[in-house]
Each structure stands twice: as structure tokens, then as C-alpha cells.
Amino acid sequence: MTTLAATAVLASGAMAMAPAAGAVGSSKCNSNFSNTDFDVLKSNASLRTGPSSNYSSKGHLAKYTKFYYYCEYTTKSTSWYYGKILTGAHKGTKGWVYAKYIGLRKP
């Protein structure tokens, strides 16, 4: 996992490091059902480091990219799925995708 931190130069010329916003894995999940293969149903859906648009994007996913679902984070107003990308440019990458963008492709 790559962690980034912000660096600032203080008035005295010294440098200060701000803590990085870390990625959130399955520890954020509050709901789980059997592991399932889904499809990304929206072009350019963001793959994120955590379950919110406030988390960094790891990249964008093409429509019909295969997504292996592990678990989800759900509140009264939103749901995010955590899983692993199985196809495409981000194959093998784990991350979060907004649940409304994930589903089963209709034949």
C-alpha cells in the first residue's frame, strides 16, 4: 500500500509532515453476504480508498469491468461495496465503489 503525506515548509524554514489519509479496507464493512462477481454498470465509476467520495480515487473503471464483492458499508443514505477488480486496467486492485454503480449485467 502506498501512503502519501503532505509536506509544508514552516516560516522558520523547517519542514513539517502532515499525516496521510489512509486507505480503508474491509475493516469499514458493516454488512456482508456471500462473495459475488458483479459488473460495473457505469462508465468512469471511481474506485476509491474508502467508502465515500471524500476518499482518494485509485482510478476510474470502464463499464462492465468485473468486480468481486467482499462486503459493504451501508448507512441510511448510502451504500459502498468493497471488493477486487477482476478485469481491465485496475485488475487485481482492491477498493470501494458506490453501490449504485455495481450490479449484474443483463443479457
Score class of each variant (00 low, 15 high):
K76S: 12
Y55N: 00
T74A: 15
K84P: 05
G103E: 02
T36K: 14
A14D: 08
M15F: 07
S12H: 03
K84A: 08
S34N: 11
S43G: 15
S52T: 06
G103L: 01
S12T: 10
D37K: 11
K100S: 14
K58F: 06
S56P: 00
A20T: 04
A5D: 08
G59W: 00
A45Q: 07
F67K: 04
T87N: 02
P19I: 08
Y70K: 15
R48L: 02
T65F: 11
K84G: 04
A21W: 01
N54T: 08
M15Q: 09
S27L: 03
G83M: 01
V9D: 08
N30L: 06
C71I: 13
A11E: 06
T93N: 09
K106A: 05
R48T: 00
I85E: 00
D37A: 13
Y98D: 13
A20C: 01
K100A: 12
L10Y: 08
K42Q: 15
Y98A: 13
N32M: 14
T74I: 14
C29P: 00
A89F: 08
G22M: 01
A99M: 04
T2K: 15
K66N: 12
T7P: 05
S12L: 08
A99W: 02
S57K: 07
T78H: 11
A14H: 02
V24K: 05
C29S: 06
K58S: 05
K84Y: 04
K91P: 07
